[in-house]
């Protein structure tokens, strides 16, 4: 929680910066972490379509990894992947 005083916050609870939800990193909500195995991936992009947090990182129309800043570890990508290219592992280990 930020420590801004009543003299500093915008009046009326207004949020003056558009899209500032991006500043809130939801990655620490995760209890399980998806691991992307590029070797098994056929680039069907099911995971990209289904990810509720747009956390599949795409470059040149190809999945190249996962954005752990926002991924909440829901596991949908793993569920929808027809090729077992995504694996869920427990968080809390030392990487």
């Amino acid at each position: 929680m930020s420590e801004k005083t009543w003299k500093e916050v915008p009046m009326g609870g207004l949020i003056l910066e558009a899209g500032n939800a991006a500043e809130y990193l939801t990655g620490d909500w995760r209890t399980e972490r998806p691991i992307f195995h590029e070797d098994k991936c056929k680039q069907c992009l099911f995971c990209w379509i289904c990810c509720p947090d747009t956390s599949m990182i795409i470059k040149d129309k190809k999945v190249i990894g996962i954005d752990y800043d926002y991924c909440k570890g829901c596991g949908i990508c793993m569920e929808v992947c027809p090729f077992d290219a995504i694996e869920m592992v427990q968080e809390g280990g030392d990487e």
């Binding site: 009326g12 609870g13 207004l14 558009a18």
Partner: peptide, 25 residues
């Protein structure tokens, strides 16, 4: 050109500060 949000959820983290602003106003 300057998009903003009116009426977001305002819980125990900021609500009190906003009420204090009203007192000041």
């Amino acid at each position: 050109d300057n998009p903003l949000t009116y009426g977001p959820l305002d819980l125990f983290d900021y609500y009190f500060e906003h009420k204090r602003q009203q007192v000041d106003a």
